[in-house]
Structure formats: structure tokens, C-alpha cells
Write a protein that binds this DNA or RNA. Sequence first.
DNA 1: CGGGATCCCCGACGATACTG
DNA 2: CAGTATCGTCGGGGATCCCG
Lengths: 91, 91
Amino acid sequence: MALLDLLGRRWALRILWELRDGPVPTFRELQQRCDNVSSSVLSERVRELRGAGIVSETGFELTDAGRELLTVLGPVDAWAKRWAKRARPPA
Amino acid sequence: MALLDLLGRRWALRILWELRDGPVPTFRELQQRCDNVSSSVLSERVRELRGAGIVSETGFELTDAGRELLTVLGPVDAWAKRWAKRARPPA
DNA sequence: CGGGATCCCCGACGATACTG
DNA sequence: CAGTATCGTCGGGGATCCCG
């Protein structure tokens, strides 16, 4: 699955997360929100997400597809949280 | 998200996929189905999936949680397929 | 048959410096 | 400010051998 190839990469989901509530004004701002990730990596990741049609070509915001993705990912996230609680403490 | 840490790893999803229709009899068999992945990697991945409660502790089959995961992943997969068609040919 | 122990390699990531 | 170029590292993945 190529999608995981993308989302599995470092900071990819974080970027999605940071853009979830609307556009982020500047590159540097996004960089700061992402724990000051290296500009090289951030730039590369954003480029990939743009290529995938998930992030807008101009500016730093999600496309419709990006928001859709967030939606389908919701249940997975929810499941992951429940899963974490029962699977993590396998004393 | 730790879940992606797991599923993003190589062969993890493939293993889920290969177990989707029921147990696979032997380690070697699963290995063959997974493109003859190295035993070291397969062993490690299965161990991780077991630790996550996704694969049964004994034998090579999904747990209830594993099947649940497959379920929530369904919509994501569906979305990914649609996404692939419109995003891939960005001629 | 299941899977641990080793060794090797490559690519992702990160830091830094730099340009328009 | 946005983004690229370069370089070093670190770890995951793969191949292979081998044991219980």
C-alpha cells in the first residue's frame, strides 16, 4: 500500500495533524509546530503530500482529499487508542 | 501514533493480508506467501504483531483484535484505492 | 519446523549552510 | 521567508547460517 509509504514517513501524520484546523501561515511556523523538524525534511514531506494531492499546492493547508483522509483515519485512530489501552499493559 | 509504527514496518500489512482468510499452517508457508521474506524479519514482525495482540500467540492467525483492525482499515483501503486513481496519473 | 545470531548495506532522517 | 545542497549517522531490512 503506497499510502502507508507516505503516511509512515516521519512527520507526515504530524503535518496532517497540524493542518487539521486550517492553514498554517508560513513554512517556518509549520516547522516550529512540528518540533522544529529540519527544513530539508519538512520540505520533502510537504512536497510528497502535495504530490499526493493531500496538501494544497500553494500554501500550507489540506485539500479536500486531505480532509477526507483525516476522516477515514478517524476510526483507525479511535481503534488505535482503545487498542493501546488493552495491548500496552500486557504485564 | 504507535500503530503506524507497527503497520508501517515492512511486511506487517502483508502478513495481516495473508492471514485474513484464516490461519496459515506453518511459518515456512507464511514465509513463502510473503515473497520469501527473510526468516529473521518475518519472525520479528510476527513477534511484534503478537505483542500488539493482533496475531495469536500460538500459531499463525489473527486474533479478534486483528480482525477488528482489518475492519477499520477497510475504509482506509477503499479511500486509498480511489485516491490512487486520481492522484497517480498527475500527468 | 520455528526462529535466533550475525553481518552487511542502503536509504531515511537530521543538522548545517546557503541561495533567491 | 521558502526551499535546496551536502554530508554524516543510524537503524531497519535482507541474506545466510545454524540450532533445538
